[in-house]
Design a protein around this nucleic acid. Structure first.
Lengths: 348, 348
DNA sequence: GCACACGATGTAAACGTTTTCCATAAACTA
DNA sequence: TAGTTTATGGAAAACGTTTACATCGTGTGC
């Protein structure tokens, strides 16, 4: 019951003050407002502080300042295995900027669904975080509305098209990304382009679909409804849906997938049928996950700079915490089409 | 500079006390030692607390209790892309148990190398966490020695063979895993089994290699040094190393890979050379990552229950925090060989 | 030489809890 | 009935900071 006793008592501000023969106020000032104390005492305090290895107790500080000094990220963790490298990359990007700013990163995981909002509530209403990053937005996202309602600083990775109240976001333009990708296929001569989309509640699903639609419509090519599918972003789902696509006597000459994982599934299905990806059927994914370079053929895809995104999200959140207006914290980045081996002209 | 003002003032313990017409001490007792207060006042306090939506300020509590109520995990984030789903799975497992225990999870990311220890120092000496989980241990792991020296509770995912001081760990027996896997190949009739290992500083690298060695030695088959390679766990590395393996006129009939990612690379190399994995060359990986089910052929591998591992790690850390002896917190799990399509009898 | 500002530091009051003491009252024991 | 335990709840002291305010020289302008 007693637990573990710390090896040595931690040194607190009093100790430093006593040792440096100043008041604790001065010690605090040296650390927080260095210019408000004379150079000689500042030096002396600084010296004793480092000598004693003084580290301000974060809880004392947080209590006094009324700040959590922590930002939160909740990661959905579906049952079963999930390898969404997206979140890991985002995490790496976030971590980089945060520790510099002296903020901690609190990560919560929760099964997607009804418990998700409860998880946000715990962080926000329990005052455990002073800001949040929300990722993988849905078209109508209860998390965003909740956070807006609570008036707590946050930044969103991705927009929510159905929410009109302004909020800070950083999005990568999925419509533009797939507009370019589709145009590329069209220029190669494709006309029979199928589309495997993402779950329609996800905001980016609509965007990527819109890009495809826009390019097709501009080229005056009608979209065949049976070639417009919706997957669940998993490799398996891409595999299964392409079975359907490849079944009829006439099948598409190109398949656009809303993410790379599904594209991987499509490539596997092609391989099984003895079809060469990039020759008999072109495939283009979205995200540029690490494996995309190593598929057979290497996957052409739309690159998302997840890590840079994470870094920028931190900057934006910091700005928001500093009081920068929401209107100045809305960014949309243009993604880049990276061509590898899985696309080519249609075979005649 | 002013930042954002909270929409409403948070309700504190005083407010609840006033409203319920008791002292703040009683309110605190109701929440922490419910049986030390009479049923009727307890009910009254509870009612007003929920009515007002009272949530104890974690920083007040932490300061008073001298506990961080937070455990830490530092994730190495090498520059460039890293898709180590391992950490994400672990995270999911950890998260599950932690929030139940009322503990927060602080995640830090840092580039591997010299900065890593500094990151641990920040968490420990800055009293930001009251316990840690360390993962992916090295044979001689400075993190472990540091934490032992600081006498701060932690649990390790994986052992450090070169550290003799006892410490709490949960490991999956890599030696046993690859012993079984190698035996399986031997029973199938293979004699020419190559091994692509992990970086030798990693602790599990030694174990997995030992399992392979043990089985080979028991079968009295000498190991050809040119078939004993070391990769860096990436898909690319597996691909490149298998180029070397497959080059000579006589090449191995089976390749054992210290992780699945490298096995994926081997499968790709095989495919490029028109060799069928599981027929011309058997391949067995380690980890059982999600993609393993979807490779061509599906990858036979040694399953690691990452999520369960994470859950158990939390239990162990909680026990450690509660004062359970280290000797009772050392577990080694036996992994399971899962056979899919990438292994088969050697071709004669 | 005097009022006054100013720079440097100390004093003390928060921040929101938990917990150790007490005080009271009620309920047993002898 | 006196004395002793027991249940209940209040008062107040922490926990380690930051910061508003007070203090005290010291130099400046006139």
């Amino acid at each position: 019951m007693s637990g573990i006793k710390p090896s040595s008592l931690a040194v607190d501000i009093r100790r430093v003050a006593a040792e440096a023969e100043v008041s604790i106020a001065t010690v605090s000032r040296v650390l927080n407002n260095p210019d408000r104390v004379s150079p000689q005492t500042r030096e002396r305090v600084l010296e004793t502080a480092t000598r004693l290895g003084y580290r301000p107790n974060p809880n004392g500080k947080r209590l006094r300042k009324g700040r959590a000094e922590t930002i939160g990220l909740v990661i959905p963790s579906p049952p079963g295995r999930f390898a969404d490298s997206f979140f890991l990359e985002l995490l790496a990007g976030l971590g980089e900027g945060l520790s510099d700013a002296g903020l901690d990163l609190l990560v919560a995981t929760c099964p997607p669904g009804s418990e998700e909002l409860a998880c946000y509530r715990r962080l926000v209403e329990g005052r455990r975080v002073e800001g949040l990053v929300v990722a993988r937005t849905r078209r109508q996202d209860e998390r965003i509305t909740y956070l807006l309602e609570q008036n707590i600083p946050f930044v969103s990775h991705g927009r929510c098209d159905l929410i009109t109240t302004p909020y800070p976001y950083l999005d990568v333009d999925g419509q533009q990304g797939f507009y370019i990708a589709t145009q590329h296929l069209l220029h190669l001569g494709h006309r029979d382009i199928a589309f495997i989309g993402a779950p329609h509640e996800l905001n980016f699903a609509a965007h990527r679909l819109a890009g495809y639609r826009q390019a097709m419509s501009e080229a005056r090519i009608p979209i065949r409804p049976e070639w417009l599918l919706e997957g669940d972003l998993s490799e398996k789902s891409g595999y299964q849906l392409s079975q359907v696509l490849l079944e009829p006597p006439e099948f598409p000459s190109a398949i656009l997938c809303a993410n790379d994982l599904m594209a991987l599934g499509v490539l596997r299905a092609l391989r099984e049928r003895g079809l060469k990806g990039g020759q008999e059927v072109s495939v283009i994914g979205y995200d540029d996950i690490p494996q995309a370079q190593y598929t057979d053929p290497p996957l052409s895809t739309v690159h998302q700079p997840f890590r840079d995104t994470g870094k920028r999200l931190v900057e934006m959140l910091l700005a928001r915490l500093g009081g920068v207006a929401v209107s100045r914290l809305q960014e949309v980045w243009v993604p880049e089409l990276v061509l590898r081996g899985s696309d080519g002209p249609p075979q005649t």
